[in-house]
Amino acid sequence: MTDFPGAPDLSAPRKGLRVLAAMSGGVDSAVAAARAVEAGHDVTGVHLALSANPQSFRTGARGCCTIEDSRDARRAADVIGIPFYCWDLAERFREDVVEDFVAEYEAGRTPNPCLRCNEKIKFAALLDKALALGFDAVCTGHYATVVVNEDGTRELHRASDMAKDQSYVLGVLDERQLAHAMFPLGDTITTKDEIRAEAERRGLAVAKKPDSHDICFIADGDTQGFLAKRLGKVEGDIVDETGATVGTHEGAYGFTIGQRKGLRIGRPAPDGKPRYVLDISPVNNTVTVGPVEALDVSALTAIKPRWCGVAPAGPGTYTAQLRAHGGETEVTAELVGDELHVRFTEPVRGVAPGQAIVLYDDTRVVGSATIATTERAAAKAGQ
């Protein structure tokens, strides 16, 4: 591995690091910033203005990056006693996250905008700006752990509390980015209620603020409606595995592989069982549905791999996570050229191109890649 001259040992007890705390306006990032101060670091808070039109307030527990959130972050910084700034990264966020999200759905893939935001915004645009201003690290409220090896290299590990682990959405970080990442919440086993109780003890008004869910730039949670406004309604057919039309839709981009609800299929399957989305073809605007068993995937090919350290040499056995809140499954994986070839020990369901696969060696994050193609177990069995 390659060490980075000047990279601070963020796990050491040394005090006095200059830390830029990314404060979303939520309870996790506020407590993380407070803990960094308590550890003796020189902390400055920053809220990222990611919306070009942040006039609307969050609805319930949905959304973030609103004016309300920036005000909550500022109030938290005041209570903690640290300087606070609001940085406008709306244009960069629109290009790297929102436009990428729309383009992926238009191409029939299912993206994860949180991974893209961590890769392109929080640990690229924000980190680059922080380092240029003389900061040593960026601190966030993610639940994950950075381990420093004896040779000074970094590893990303799962949080101590698996129930809150967020290492999946951080699997895009490379070693240089890990060298300047600080996650104060990752190495303590505490429930969310305990984090809120800590925030209340510290006098932080966000202690009782609801968590944000879904996609931050789709505050009402209506992804299909958001895409329809951007891409327009384009009617097409919903077909079964034989090619027979069983319904219609207003845009193939509004579906994802494994989806069951909202298909609006006029007649039931011959066996009376529910049908699921098996394939999305943007070329002819067709959605294919079929039985749940047809969703079983035995292997996949992924592209654009990013490694949290040195890329693995040769085939290896790992566990893989396919969703932010999904479980682990055992796989064998090998890097072939620029592609990651993965085979599952047992078939898995609901795997869609565009999703990220993150590989683990026990608790260590090996790296991640974007799923390009899948191999159906049923198709292989029928050969």
Results as ranks from 00 to 15, higher is better:
residue 21 A to W: 02
residue 24 S to G: 03
residue 25 G to H: 03
residue 40 G to K: 00
residue 45 G to T: 00
residue 45 G to S: 04
residue 46 V to R: 08
residue 51 S to E: 14
residue 61 A to W: 11
residue 67 I to W: 08
residue 70 S to W: 07
residue 72 D to G: 00
residue 73 A to S: 06
residue 78 D to Q: 13
residue 81 G to M: 12
residue 81 G to N: 04
residue 90 A to M: 03
residue 93 F to P: 05
residue 101 F to I: 01
residue 105 Y to D: 13
residue 113 P to I: 07
residue 122 K to S: 06
residue 125 A to D: 09
residue 126 L to Y: 00
residue 129 K to R: 15
residue 133 L to Q: 13
residue 141 G to H: 01
residue 155 E to N: 14
residue 157 H to Q: 10
residue 159 A to L: 10
residue 160 S to T: 15
residue 162 M to A: 15
residue 165 D to T: 01
residue 190 T to Y: 11
residue 191 T to C: 13
residue 198 E to K: 02
residue 211 D to E: 13
residue 214 D to K: 11
residue 215 I to D: 06
residue 221 G to V: 08
residue 229 K to D: 14
residue 236 G to Q: 03
residue 244 A to H: 13
residue 246 V to N: 05
residue 249 H to E: 07
residue 251 G to H: 03
residue 259 Q to G: 09
residue 276 Y to M: 04
residue 283 V to T: 14
residue 284 N to T: 10
residue 286 T to L: 02
residue 292 V to C: 08
residue 305 P to E: 04
residue 308 C to A: 15
residue 309 G to T: 03
residue 316 G to T: 06
residue 316 G to Q: 02
residue 326 G to L: 08
residue 334 E to I: 12
residue 338 D to W: 10
residue 351 V to G: 10
residue 357 I to L: 12
residue 374 T to W: 03
residue 375 E to Q: 15
residue 379 A to V: 12
residue 380 K to N: 10
residue 382 G to P: 04
